[in-house]
Design a protein around this nucleic acid. Sequence first.
DNA 1: GAGTGGTCTAGACCACGGG
DNA 2: CCGTGGTCTAGACCACTCA
Lengths: 253, 253
Amino acid sequence: MGTTQLETVPEPKYWHLKTVLSEALDSEFSVGEILPNERELAARFGVARATLRQALEQLELEGRLQRRRGVGTTVAPPRVGVAVGAEQHAWPGAGDTVWQPVDSTVEAPPAAVADALETGRNTLVHTVRRSRTTHGQPVAAELLYVPGQSVPDLPAIETPTGAARARAVLRELQHLELEGRESAVELGSARADDAKELDRLPGAPVLVVTTRFFAGRRVAAVSVATYRADTCRLTFGDTGGVEIHEGPERRAS
Amino acid sequence: MGTTQLETVPEPKYWHLKTVLSEALDSEFSVGEILPNERELAARFGVARATLRQALEQLELEGRLQRRRGVGTTVAPPRVGVAVGAEQHAWPGAGDTVWQPVDSTVEAPPAAVADALETGRNTLVHTVRRSRTTHGQPVAAELLYVPGQSVPDLPAIETPTGAARARAVLRELQHLELEGRESAVELGSARADDAKELDRLPGAPVLVVTTRFFAGRRVAAVSVATYRADTCRLTFGDTGGVEIHEGPERRAS
DNA sequence: GAGTGGTCTAGACCACGGG
DNA sequence: CCGTGGTCTAGACCACTCA
């Protein structure tokens, strides 16, 4: 008896490091500032570089830091709020300024999308690639899947090039009456193509927003949008597209 | 000349590993099955354990695997869709079956919440802790912040114990006419208390849903709900709370 | 070419769960 | 107790950016 053994929970080093760094970021650094490099930080805290990196990874995941190979680690600006699923009854691309059509093809969608579209697994559909930027930074890459039935007049006006074709598909889509939409958000990791468009490395954490558009009692289109999880806060609600809040918002510690 | 140098992109080992494992999961394993332990897997693939772990981490992030210390690595079931922000005009706790009141206190909210509430930084508010489970598994932990003005009759009926007090606050809230709500989703990492409630380690990836409830042209309450990012898919839309889809949904490879 | 973050190794020990 | 995943180390080399 006597060995009361308080504090039986030895906090992992990287967790403690993260806390210390987080407080230092709040008090001693300003947005955009470059931190000392990893080798020096590790030495300064008396830990192995791998351990320090574990702490940095967490802070990057939380949107506090931004790391770039060959450049360094900088203090990230607060996450930007991006409106998602506003304009409940507007088709994508209707007078859109935030999304830029990039390309368009005809191909067989991945199985999960085919299921959501309720078409057969091997049915060809139109695809439209779009990218979204805010404040000059890429924040999202989207792939929109449109079954041929949803744009019956398209083949007649077959346009050759990528972006123009994309716009044509979006234009045809406006002819349908949109009845509703359903969205889901989940965590994913960036595929190689998305990563490139988002200016991140493959495997970077992303928020995947899957939306089903309903028209004529059918699923008229499916969109899979990939948002940078480190820089974005997705906003929903009755705001009509207005961003909820701006400023130094931080989660409770 | 002659050294045409195709494939100048040496794919990282862990990335390739992830792909190989992912395909193996699809074809050779079924949900709940236990994988060989990390040391054996690493040996089998001829890589260091740390490298293998990097691949496993990614797969866990994508909800394909579940790892538990002292137990092993198992194949995760498909993510469960949880409805968020349905019933646009219902207060939290109105005949709720998915959320369980846990506790309630009076305290000063964190700065970010105080800002969202538009109360002063040091104003005391009621807090209500709730937890959400699906299929017997904990999926979310919520902290609801309610300024005293929103529940003016509460002090008179001061109830002592935690869960009962939580229910009392929620009941008082129903008296207000809810005008709308705004939600935002972002990636975070679980704090120690949330992690415990979610049966995860601290730092585990979570989807943080911040909701502002409006009544009487004011922000009447703010909710910060923390969902397990590995097991959850958050659904929004005109579904009235019905889950969007069930089944073997997988993102495009 | 110098300096950064990204990948990888081969070890060690620890915390936890279950028999 | 044993086996599991979680943490940590001290190195090495690679890929990228920029002057």
